[in-house]
Nucleic acid binder design. Sequence first.
DNA 1: GTCTATATGGAGATAGAC
DNA 2: GTCTATCTCCATATAGAC
Lengths: 232, 232
Amino acid sequence: MAQASGGVPRKEKAGGTVRADVAAAAPEGGIRRENLRRILTAAEQVFAEQGYGGATTAAIALRAGLPKANVHYYFSTKRDLYRAVLADILKQWLDPLAHVTPDSDPAQALAGYIRAKMRATRDRPVVSKVFAGEIIHGAEEIWGFLTADLKSLVDEKAAVLDGWIAEGRMAPVDTRHFFFFIWAVTQHYADFDAQVRAVLGRKKLTRRDFDTITAEVVRFILRGAGLSLPST
Amino acid sequence: MAQASGGVPRKEKAGGTVRADVAAAAPEGGIRRENLRRILTAAEQVFAEQGYGGATTAAIALRAGLPKANVHYYFSTKRDLYRAVLADILKQWLDPLAHVTPDSDPAQALAGYIRAKMRATRDRPVVSKVFAGEIIHGAEEIWGFLTADLKSLVDEKAAVLDGWIAEGRMAPVDTRHFFFFIWAVTQHYADFDAQVRAVLGRKKLTRRDFDTITAEVVRFILRGAGLSLPST
DNA sequence: GTCTATATGGAGATAGAC
DNA sequence: GTCTATCTCCATATAGAC
């Protein structure tokens, strides 16, 4: 672990558990709540840019506009803060899948899901990067979330797609892997944006770029599932 | 930067350049070459697991079975070692695209490329993870490679696909993004294997799993390009 | 609740005997 | 070329005045 040094945490407990919602507990408008939000937002960015090991509490404090000791007042260890950031992220991770229900039109529902994912990619790329880093490095901290919450949601939604397939409403694909494909492609534009920009020779991807890309992604994935949208 | 401490490198030059091939320079069978290989292999694994910031030279030395000072003998700084690992990786990164040439059959050529990528994913997942980490965190170290080597290769191969499209041999897709899709999906199974295993409820993906997944990936991507393989 | 000043100990890096 | 012993610095975390 980079975790360079530090007086105390000789051995960090590898939790597997992530507590929810630190910030929401504080009273609205209070200074505590405000500071928690500032710290969490700053931490999210720094963890995304530097990775857990590369991030320093000093950098987080600086970006939050608070003295370093203040960060430790709210989160006693760097790992605690990291867990809080992850908890924050997981809350929003499952939401977009709500679109997918048995009675919806396959192409419309999946397109809606993909668009929601691409919107998240565009608006909050750092979230995706922190999540990606955590998984790449073994997902110890969110293992419980992956094996319980995420797995059961995927099982449920895969069953919906299996129903569509049985009814001949989409091509026969392995539905769980199909979700992997969707995640892989959509999150690629957040996590690997540097590569995308380098290959396209673009300094920055604009909103318009994202609209174009989203349309291309939707078309590609739907075609992969034997679907297409009515051309409007 | 995690880079915790360390007596010397107060400020790390952000290179953008990656020197090639440290190990190959040494004479075959020599102890130098042997040690370089051990260190590079160990470093690759540790960087993949812990990230650059989280990796320590002590951990790398331990895994290489050498004293820490010996690592510094071959690579004066941790960043130097990291660059060498990246250089090692980049060498193999472009190879699989060789399959894609104007006169080949689109479905066969692309399937070959995808299979090669999936094989790399299966056999050397750590390579993919180090590469992913580098890009997620801004790709400073390999920016030159991305904007020069990778970009021109993609431009070249995209032109091949554009030719196929013009001849009506595959569906009209944005060919550069099509490569992004391929990379996203194939590398997903290396980089996000923890998530894949968690959702599938599998402790480990076997060779057989990989064969199945590869077939599914090939089918999906080809269908997305309006192609299919002759069922054998 | 806030923040300056400080402790603590580990991380990268080196000297120098072998 | 190798490796033990050691140096230096800085990142985490805390004490304690405000």
